[in-house]
Design a protein around this nucleic acid. Structure first.
Lengths: 287, 287
DNA sequence: AGTGACTATGCTTGGCGCGCATGGATGTGG
DNA sequence: CCACATCCATGCGCGCCAAGCATAGTCACT
């Protein structure tokens, strides 16, 4: 005499479809089967749940009550299964560039120590949300705040900016440069990176902006373009630490505003360890 | 390939019992059946949930996750069924004496008008919580605050006190009396009513207290005892309105403190309409 | 009265969950 | 070192029950 999930599904389908026949079709079964399932549910609960005749169908107050609870239970079960499957799946940390710079390795180490059974994958995703918007990642490190209400961000820390120059560039051996120096010399285009937005012509006053710009799609294109002398770039300190390249020199920019690194996650977490991981990141960054 | 409640129950039993064999016994089935159910659950979820060998058994992280959700779901289902069965059951309002006096009828009328499909039963329960503590009622009107953490009370209004006198008592024709008058005349005992506590010898200063007292168990005993001249009583105004009796006269007591009427309910509601009914009571009383 | 739309019931079958018997694995005591 | 106990997994056969099919009953509308 147990109520089972099929009973709850039957009640939900009948309530939504409006007739037993239509609900049966929706559930890929015949009307007699569903009719019996409903009758069985009523005898097991001990209460009439649906007022039905050949021309009319409506839920009783008890039916409405059970429908509400039943839908919540079914939704809870779906969430539980998703959660359970996700536990044994690696947590995917997305980034487009540099992850957390030199803090990346300490983060991975402390996470593995604290959660040995919760694998972590660090994946590069070359798009504006580093894979969050597409569901390819569970958490992400971003350099800009995406305009998407389904994604929550928090500022982590700020980084000084560096110029990325070909190693034969006149300024390549300087200890530091100023923004104006970069656009005063040879007429190199500025390499822009739409998906991260770390650099922008807005860094310069209108009169001093680079004459030309070139768009790149990922960090490899960016480095190669610069190394071959096709452009110069502006990045953040973390980039220099994480993405060394033989033909590229990184020189601190003295007068550029600092860049902010953001931690981002979906409004509805896609992995059960999301919150724990965010806490670990904050811990490593502030500690 | 659906996960069913039997799977969740199986996981919960195994986790609690510590071995499949013991869990099977607890579920009144054989070990092979339960073993298969667990294996089936794992294939349907797609994740290993229990690490087991002939000498060791432990939940995996995924198993722990599903166990937590599963227990919540099972508890939710139990609550849902209880709720559903209760919806079509009358809401039982308990009282020991007078209910809400002359406000009782307006309350019943407005409730029936607002909730035509939610029947209401008004039942007398001759004990200190008017049936709440025993689960015989869902809401109650009390004259005292019970010392039970499972019962919540709120003050509703106050009533003047009246003396209940045999109709041949010397004071029976007075417009009003004072407490001292009641103990100065013939040596009648005071009828006390342990379960409601509306009257008490504490009303009088020590020197003027009634010489004798008699305990009664319900309002009928109380009225009959007084009508036959065996005692006098002290009640609240509502008692006079609700419990008229040919041999009993009610006379206002000028110098007794007012009595408070309380609305009481279980900390864990036993009927889904509990809150709506409480609101209706407050509405009638204050309106 | 005929028709169409809907639910309820009798009958039959097929799937599956259960019990029984047994085998394999592992730790324990004589 | 070998019986022994304990526990989980698997093969097999049975019985229950949920689903499909066919049909009857009900109601509103023409």
């Amino acid at each position: 005499m147990d109520v089972e999930l099929r009973h709850l599904k039957a009640l939900a389908a009948i309530a939504e479809a409006g007739t037993v026949t239509a609900a049966a079709a929706r559930l890929h079964m015949t009307q007699p089967a569903l009719s019996r399932t409903l009758a069985q549910l009523e005898t097991r609960v001990g209460v009439r749940l649906v007022d039905r005749s050949s021309r009319h169908l409506a839920l009783t107050p008890a039916g409405t009550t059970l429908l509400g609870h039943g839908q919540a239970i079914l939704a809870h079960l779906d969430a539980a299964l998703a959660d359970t499957r996700a536990v044994s799946r690696p947590l995917r940390l997305g980034y487009t560039c540099a992850v957390l710079g030199q803090q990346t390795v300490p983060l991975l180490r402390s996470w593995r120590r604290a959660h040995p059974h919760a694998p972590l994958e660090v994946v590069r995703q070359d798009n504006r949300t580093a894979g969050l918007a597409t569901g390819d990642t569970d958490v992400a490190v971003l350099r800009t705040v995406p305009d998407d209400p389904r994604i929550r961000t928090e500022a982590l820390y700020t980084e000084d900016r560096v110029a990325a120059l070909p190693d034969d560039h006149p300024l390549a051996d300087r200890d530091r440069v100023r923004l104006a120096d970069l656009t005063a010399g040879p007429d190199l285009p500025l390499a822009l990176w739409p998906d991260t937005g770390t650099a922008s012509v807005d860094l310069w006053p209108p009169a001093r902006r680079p004459a030309r710009t070139v768009d790149v799609r990922n960090v490899d294109e960016w480095l190669n373009l610069i190394a071959t002398g096709g452009a110069f770039g502006v990045g953040a300190a973390g980039t220099a630490e994480s993405h060394g390249h033989p033909g590229v020199r990184f020189v601190p920019v003295a007068d550029a505003p600092a860049a902010t690194v953001y931690l981002a996650r979906p409004a509805h977490p896609t992995h059960p360890h999301t919150d724990a991981f965010l806490a670990a990141v904050r811990d490593v960054v502030s500690g």
